[in-house]
Design a protein around this nucleic acid. Sequence first.
DNA 1: CGCATACTTGACGTCATTCAAACCGTGTGG
DNA 2: CCACACGGTTTGAATGACGTCAAGTATGCG
Lengths: 235, 235
Amino acid sequence: MEGYGIMNLACSTCPVKETAACAVLTPEERDAMAAAGRTRTLKRGEMLFAAGDEEAACATLQSGALKVSAIDQDGNEQILALVHPAGFIGELFAPFAHHDVVALTESRLCTFAKRDIERAIEDYPALARALLRRSQADLLATRNLLELTGHASAEARLAALLHDFAGAASESSCHLAQYFELPLTRGEIANMLGLTIETVSRKLGELEDMGAIRREGKRGIALLDATMLQDISGR
Amino acid sequence: MEGYGIMNLACSTCPVKETAACAVLTPEERDAMAAAGRTRTLKRGEMLFAAGDEEAACATLQSGALKVSAIDQDGNEQILALVHPAGFIGELFAPFAHHDVVALTESRLCTFAKRDIERAIEDYPALARALLRRSQADLLATRNLLELTGHASAEARLAALLHDFAGAASESSCHLAQYFELPLTRGEIANMLGLTIETVSRKLGELEDMGAIRREGKRGIALLDATMLQDISGR
DNA sequence: CGCATACTTGACGTCATTCAAACCGTGTGG
DNA sequence: CCACACGGTTTGAATGACGTCAAGTATGCG
């Protein structure tokens, strides 16, 4: 029906149909929602919406990764959260978006107009509960990041982030990937941890020197000693 | 029916009956919930629940103020959030609490067992929506704090916090109180902003020297130049 | 009055930032 | 093919902001 890179949903082939918020809907309810949604793809660096947008869409991330970030008045970016597949993006009750949302890698999402989501929340109580659960999880994740950036040294922040990435890169949630690619540039890591590019680079070197990790190319990280990393991170 | 400082609810006299999550319920629904809840008072420093508790209650704050904090493995506290009247406390879907919740001032709350809340969320869709709205607001507040502690200087962090307190202390949400009492000790302010007691003390002195505020006793703050404060905070 | 708790102030040290330069992989044009 | 430019990264040296340590000053409570 529509043209430009946007098409109707096919929930049956959705990679996150089991884990996303819409998984709690009955098939009929889900089809009704699907009629209102559109899939969309973003290339690295493309923006889903910007702080201040009044008609910011909501979306479930199907694949790829997004960042949620704020820009302060001197133009410095601060990354506030990462969004992984099955994550939900959108400030439901705000009149406008407070933050930017940008793709970190090629990403596929399933988007809805805010008013459609709001109606679905009224119509399907299970959806409201699913989004509440997800919102609480996001809150916990944000508080964990806050805890990290609050008191810890640069080394501890970086160690904790690497540890988290190793966990996120592994399929089984309880085990760590022993090799993974950083989803962020040095600059993005620095923004996320409240550090500078140079400090991130130096501390990565030190972690390598002490045998906790090995860098492979710009993005690759081999986890040599997870215990040491955990220990350095102070958790 | 019960004894120790706990009594049945009287929603009709509740100071936040218009603004708390339960305000969305019909009178009959509210009375049904009230039967499951208990009011409770906490003195300054008393704990509602601790990180790791499996039977952590949920609660709506009626009056006073609470802090949500984490303790890292060296015993350092980090304040993650403040809770004001009408705020809701409780991690609904977690098997145990991740953080401590402690009263900052004498506080009155309306508590519920987690399973009662979970049943109410199933039974009353409007409640789920209200809690979702509140959860998203908490998420935004936490991200604002993260943004603040991420990049800003000690002076900017303190200026922003004072500005927020001046807003919270005023009745009308859009105007600032021109005088208020700090709800936190120096140590708590320091924990919240990721600083030390000494730095907070010094920077308060500097803000006073440059004419942005005047300290009156330990806790009192008179706002002399809100514009300067806003300017320093960088927002 | 004496002790405890919170806060202030000063001198000094340290860690992260800043500024500057070099490095590396990749793509582009000659 | 090589020269070159460019973005992301690494490395070094100097500076500075905040932390640490230590002493001193309220304020309140038994």
